[in-house]
């Protein structure tokens, strides 16, 4: 049985203590401190990463449950010299103040745009089966798992909207 997790394209061994959350594995074992520990209870979304294409709270899952899985963190989405379009948009529109929630916001938004493209519905969708739109209302609902204590929400929505419309 495979005992590794692929992190941003590189296979890494899973720690032997089963208590290690995926979040602590990324930060403490892998040194990937972009992923943030906010509440550690799945309420704030600062720890959001993308596992096998789906965004999840890395604090509420164990590294041991993910052998064979592929994880993308903020470090895997872009670099200072080659940022992802959402990273550029967050800078452009001041989608943050202190920046602590930002990696989670951007990982979440990256997966959210894929979900909209795949036709996933949300609580804000009028029609469950129609084409999904990245309207401000939809973005707010779909991003409700990512809190920003600085309250940069208006600019976060603007940044995401810009990329969503660019994709359309």
């Amino acid at each position: 049985m495979s005992k590794t997790i692929t992190v941003n394209g590189t296979e890494r061994p899973i720690p032997s203590d089963p208590r290690v959350s995926l979040l602590d594995f990324l930060r403490e074992n892998e040194g990937l401190t972009g992923t943030k520990k906010g509440c550690d209870h799945g309420q704030c979304g600062a720890c959001t990463v993308i596992v096998n294409g789906m965004r999840i709270n890395s604090c509420l899952t164990l590294a041991a449950m993910h052998d064979g899985d592929s994880v993308t963190t903020i470090e895997g989405l872009g670099t200072p010299t080659s940022p992802s379009p959402l990273q550029v948009a967050f800078v452009e529109h001041d989608g943050f103040q202190c920046g602590y929630c930002t990696p989670g916001q951007i990982c979440s938004a990256t997966a959210m745009l894929d979900e909209i493209a795949a036709g996933f519905a949300s609580d804000a969708s009028e029609d469950l089966l129609g084409e999904m739109q990245a309207s401000p209302e939809e973005i707010r609902e779909r991003m409700s798992g990512n809190l920003c204590r600085c309250g940069a929400y208006a600019n976060i929505v603007t940044a995401i909207r810009e990329i969503a419309q660019g994709d359309a």
């Binding site: 999840i56 979440s108 969708s125 469950l128 409700s144």
Partner: peptide
Amino acid sequence: LARAILAGATQQLRNR
């Protein structure tokens, strides 16, 4: 059923 699920939690949690 779809509506009830979508009214609960967040996308990150529903994915797990």
